[in-house]
C-alpha cells in the first residue's frame, strides 16, 4: 500500500481513455457520484521528489499530494493512460518531463482561463 496518492479527475473524454487503458475497475465515484477520479499511488520517496520539484506542492489531511501545477496533473493523466499504471511508474514518467512541466507551470502561474459558468 502506497503512502500517498494524487487524484486525477476525469471528465467524459478521460473516463473513456481510462477504461480503454484497462483501468476502468479503478475509477472511483465520489460525492454521491458527482465526481469521478482515479487515485495514482505514490511512494514516500517519490512524494519527496514531487515536493522538491514544485514549491507549492503539499500533502493534505488525506495524504493526498495537492497544489501541484495543472501542467503536472495533465501530464500525469497522459502517463497513466500511456503506462497503464496507477503507481510510481506513471509518476516517474511524468517527473522525467519535469523541465517541460516547469516551463508550462511558469506560464500557467500568470494566466489560467476562467471557466464560463451561468
Amino acid at each position: 500500500m502506497a503512502d500517498y496518492f494524487i487524484d486525477v479527475l476525469l471528465d467524459e473524454g478521460r473516463l473513456q481513455a481510462i477504461k480503454d487503458a484497462g483501468l476502468g475497475d479503478n475509477i472511483k465515484y465520489r460525492f454521491a457520484g458527482e465526481l469521478k477520479l482515479v487515485e495514482v499511488h505514490v511512494s514516500e520517496d517519490t512524494k519527496n521528489k514531487i515536493l522538491k520539484e514544485f514549491d507549492t506542492a503539499r500533502t493534505d489531511s488525506r495524504n493526498a499530494i495537492t497544489d501541484v501545477p495543472v501542467a503536472f496533473l495533465r501530464e500525469l493523466y497522459h502517463q497513466v493512460v500511456k503506462t497503464k499504471s496507477l503507481g510510481d511508474e506513471a509518476v516517474e514518467a511524468t517527473l522525467a518531463k519535469v523541465d517541460e512541466i516547469k516551463d508550462l507551470a511558469a506560464k500557467e502561474s500568470e494566466y489560467l482561463p476562467a471557466p464560463e459558468i451561468d
Binding site: 479527475l9 465520489r30 488525506r62
Partner: peptide, 30 residues
C-alpha cells in the same frame, strides 16, 4: 466518509472543474 480538503478543491478549481454543489455551493464558486 469522503474527506474534504481545501487543497483538493483548489486542484479541482485550477483544472476548471466546477466542484459538485455538495462540496462547494455554486454561489461560492461563482
Amino acid at each position: 466518509r469522503e474527506k474534504l480538503s481545501g487543497s483538493f478543491l483548489r486542484g479541482m478549481v485550477a483544472q476548471g472543474v466546477q466542484p459538485p454543489a455538495i462540496i462547494m455551493r455554486p454561489e461560492v464558486f461563482k
